[in-house]
Design a protein around this nucleic acid. Structure first.
Lengths: 343, 343
DNA sequence: ATGAAAGCGCTAACAG
DNA sequence: CTGTTAGCGCTTTCAT
């Protein structure tokens, strides 16, 4: 299988008539080693294609230099951006990233967490699955002092660092915009209300209704899984209503786009009869017709912030920290909700 | 940092009055160890929360149990499916996956390859970046007998295992379909022709033209980066043509969708004036209007096949194999290219 | 500024 | 079926 024997520091030491200790120090840029010796060692290592054995080093150091990431789904523009933000920071800090995705299933999330625990990750970055309520599977990490950063989908009362946006504010703004555009019978289509992101956006929605003196009627909130199928289903329900809504605020873009398309196919005019706002600024929001108004928040920044906060935890000798970082988001107004020109 | 000392097999051995060798064997399910002993050991390990130290084990075994994956982009439905297919197989085989993405840049791809080489991955699964021509950065792997599986974007003459679809056939079918729908002035918009996927689809396109006795005029093929921007640019070019094409075959869905949208906004009727076919069956292909005809191929299957072939290489004592696996693809006919009802 | 030596936790050859 | 023992390659005291 292996054609060439691997080079070790023993080989380098022998070739240079040095001890392995000095070679090791030189390779790790230890200040106590002579500059010339250091250069000689590094040059030979480079020339001979030496690769440090991370296992030996890890065994000795008791650090895996591995960060586990658990995301609820891979296939979204948002998550892909977050991942590249995380990667950017952690790769620069010489960490390896191991990604597990839960496919929005709490059971898979638990399996992933256990797996990463056994892999001995030094830290964890997590976005919770849609149906995750219980967080016991993170206890082993907490008990061993392994820092966890949650992003986007978080449980506020859980220990650890959380990186989120102000979902209530975002929900408020989206709703206020619809009202300002003349909508009076609003509907909010959202995901599992056990998740902060959904419950907060809902609260923003309700708050905006109250502030604008619109009734908070039951049936105005639909809890779905925000899937493609759910989008069609919501459209079907709306079409059957005698008293149809004139404004829809969705908690993601996919569901909003599909619903909007289905409504249009049934002859509804968007935004004239029904205005629509989504969430996340996915690629599809720009491709559907009319273009979908949505809430944008920078995934890569969220990833970078999450990773940096994790790093500072890893490098700190203090105990595990618990705090929340709130990033900004922007409402992006496009055709799907624009009835009057914006000044 | 660490609150509890880690458990080792020494601790377990002591507690059970066994030797560490027996404990190690029991944990690794060695058949020579007594069933009862094995159960006792495993139960205690479980109860006490023992975690195997992969570093010690890896150091001893000279295997990292890590597979490196290099993909050109994370944010596509296709790549996400491939990744979950790979993950499914490799996780079951107890491998860790390390993902690097090249952002379609050959420079980043080289950096990723070097990085993974230093991480001592046991194997590699790769989809080449758009502009990768030279494959020298995989030489170190080849020299050390580390198996590589290329998928989708491959170089056919390169050593190693390749998993692809018959892109020429797919291109032929898409083109033949457009012709059968009455298109006579076809255009093919594709990516870097250094890539097998693009040159093969182009060949299929040309072959179909020949077979149907349509002229193979220059200017019928546009090489782009298949981005959102390219889609708009292609539409602009087409709109300026006095003699417009009546059928467009794109090598991906995003570019096709954007171009189609831009054409429609300029008043062109799709598919009546210009019919459009994309490639990959991305989510957007179902959301745009009209729905985009496209070529579907199962990413998750491609991932599974790639991973399984890598595993068989890893488990074989024979030399590095070189062969190609061809998976099937299907043309999915939707509104964007359907001028007449299909029988 | 450098060297000698111990040990991180595990596996496997060898010996019973 | 089980135990003894020798490393895997590296980092780090403790000497010099």
């Amino acid at each position: 299988m292996t054609s060439k024997k691997e080079l070790t520091i023993y080989d380098l030491a022998e070739r240079l008539n040095l001890s392995i200790a000095t070679v090791s120090r030189a390779l790790n840029n230890d200040p106590t080693v002579n500059k010339k010796t250091k250069r000689k060692v590094c040059e030979l290592a480079e020339a001979m294609g030496y690769r440090k054995n991370n296992f030996a080093s890890g065994l000795r150091m008791q650090k895996t230099n591995t960060i586990g990431i658990i995301v609820h789904e891979l296939n979204s523009h948002f998550i892909a951006s977050v991942l590249s933000g995380i990667e950017e920071v952690l790769t620069a800090a010489e960490y390896i990233i191991v990604i597990g995705h839960s496919s929005e299933s709490s059971v898979t999330e638990v399996a992933n967490a256990n797996n990463l625990f056994h892999k001995r990750v030094d830290g964890l970055i997590v976005s919770l699955a849609n149906d995750t309520v219980n967080l016991d599977h993170y206890d082993p990490f907490v008990k061993r002092g392994i820092p966890i950063v949650f992003f986007d989908r978080v449980r506020k009362e859980a220990p650890g660092i959380k990186v989120i946006i102000d979902n209530e504010k975002a929900g408020y703004e989206a709703t206020a915009h619809l009202i300002q555009q003349g909508c009076r019978r609003l509907m909010h289509i959202t995901g599992n209300l056990a998740q902060n992101v959904y419950v907060d956006r809902l609260n923003g929605f309700k708050k905006a209704l109250r502030d604008k003196n619109l009734p908070d009627e039951p049936g105005h909130v639909l809890v779905t899984d925000l899937s493609e199928r759910a989008g069609r289903e919501v459209a079907r329900q709306i079409l059957e209503l005698k008293r149809k809504p004139d404004g829809l605020f969705f908690s993601n873009d996919l569901c909003a786009a599909v619903c909007m398309k289905t409504l249009k196919e049934a002859g509804i005019k968007v935004p004239q009869e029904i205005a629509v706002v989504g969430f996340n600024n996915d690629t599809i929001s720009r491709l559907v017709e009319p273009q979908l108004s949505t809430v944008n928040y920078a995934g890569s920044e969220m990833g970078r912030v999450a990773a940096n906060n994790l790093l500072s935890q890893l490098n700190s000798s203090l105990g595990v920290a618990s705090y929340t970082v709130v990033l900004t988001s922007q409402l992006m107004i496009r055709e799907s909700s624009l009835r009057y020109a914006i000044l």
